[in-house]
């Protein structure tokens, strides 16, 4: 097994190998140990700077990356579009070049356009982490989902996983699908038919429009957020109708395996895609996902900051 991540950037899980995923997850497991200590900080990225470059509002992911960097003793700077010169008409590349000139060691980028982090990665020498690009990928979320599943279930290979909801607009779904299938899980997607991507077969997953059929025999159910902000037009008649056909609740969850778990990338629209009682029940591992997020992002920053030094020396 490789000890190095032989890439400069983490842009998506599409081309991640099983070995690379395992390296990140194993590294994250060691990072999680640190988070249990009284002093939750190690000096390995001392003197390094991580810049969170967010062109789209985000509290959780940004905070998670910020804490991850600080736990490793990196200096973390947040740069958000709302207060930046993007509003003054500066182009994406100009903004990024300006930031690169300040010599950061890792750039964490979120952007509402798919491919924006890839564009920056091609033009900049600093490692770029995609923290979510449009409806394309969200690799750190995909990795933390894999980490949580492996931790709770003891394995990923051979598990039956359902991803439920708005697959079409979800970068989380895409990263989850790539990661899960690479690790040998069997993935089913389910949601209102306009929200199921037409090319789903190419993704190596099964699709169904019947939630009862979809839930049967599943080990893991990943519920996606209804993202009204990403829908340009109406993809389903009403929230009420969505809840009736695709909302997950305790009663429906009985169709899945007895020890099945429920996951959600947050923030939850309580009572919409996920019923209150289920979100707070012990089959829900939502808070464990958040906890895993810090450990996985520590692993990502650690592995990338190291790669750069390898390239330079």
């Amino acid at each position: 097994m490789s000890d190095f991540l032989s890439r400069k950037d983490i842009l998506g899980l599409r081309d991640f190998t099983r070995q690379e995923i395992e390296l990140v997850l194993d590294t994250a497991a060691s990072m999680e140990d640190i988070l249990q200590r009284e002093i939750k900080k190690v000096p390995s990225l001392r003197g390094k700077t991580v810049v969170n470059l967010f062109f789209e509002p985000s509290t959780r992911t940004r905070t998670s990356f910020e804490i991850a960097g600080k736990r490793l003793s990196a200096d973390v700077v947040n740069f958000s579009a709302a207060v930046s010169s993007v509003k003054k008409g500066e182009t994406l590349l100009d903004t990024a070049r300006n930031i690169e000139a300040m010599k950061p060691d890792v750039l964490v980028v979120r952007h509402s356009s798919s491919g924006a982090p890839h564009f920056l990665a091609r033009h900049l020498s600093v490692p770029v982490v995609n923290a979510g690009d449009g409806r394309h990928e969200h690799p750190s979320q995909g990795l933390l989902d894999l980490y949580t599943i492996r931790k709770v279930k003891g394995r990923i290979e051979g598990l039956n996983v359902l991803i439920l909801g708005d697959i079409l607009h979800s970068r989380v779904a895409r990263s989850d699908i790539y990661g899960l299938t690479t690790m040998g899980a069997k993935v089913t997607i389910c949601g209102p038919s306009p929200l199921i991507p037409r090319e789903y077969q190419a993704l190596g997953v099964e699709a169904t429009w019947d939630i009862n059929e979809a839930l049967r025999g599943k080990d893991v159910v990943i519920v996606l957020r209804i993202q009204l902000e990403r829908m340009e037009s109406s993809f389903f008649p009403s929230i009420r109708e969505y809840v009736r056909y695709f909302g997950l609740n305790r009663e429906r969850m009985k169709l899945a395996k007895e020890d099945a778990i429920v996951m959600h990338p947050g923030p939850v629209n309580r009572g919409w895609e996920l019923a209150d009682d289920l979100a707070d029940s012990d089959v829900s591992v939502i808070l464990q996902q958040v906890e895993a997020g810090v450990a996985v992002r520590m692993a990502i920053l650690y592995l990338l900051a190291h790669v750069r030094e390898e390239v330079e020396s």
């Binding site: 000890d3 190095f4 390296l23 194993d26 590294t27 060691s30 990072m31 140990d33 640190i34 190690v42 000096p43 390995s44 490793l72 650690y302 592995l303 190291h306 030094e309 390898e310 330079e312 020396s313």
Partner: peptide, 19 residues
């Protein structure tokens, strides 16, 4: 591993072990 001062040296393996 996380406390080393020679992260940048060639031949250094960043693979973490347990404490």
């Amino acid at each position: 591993t996380l406390y080393r001062d020679d992260l940048s040296r060639i031949g250094y393996h960043p693979k973490l072990k347990k404490t």
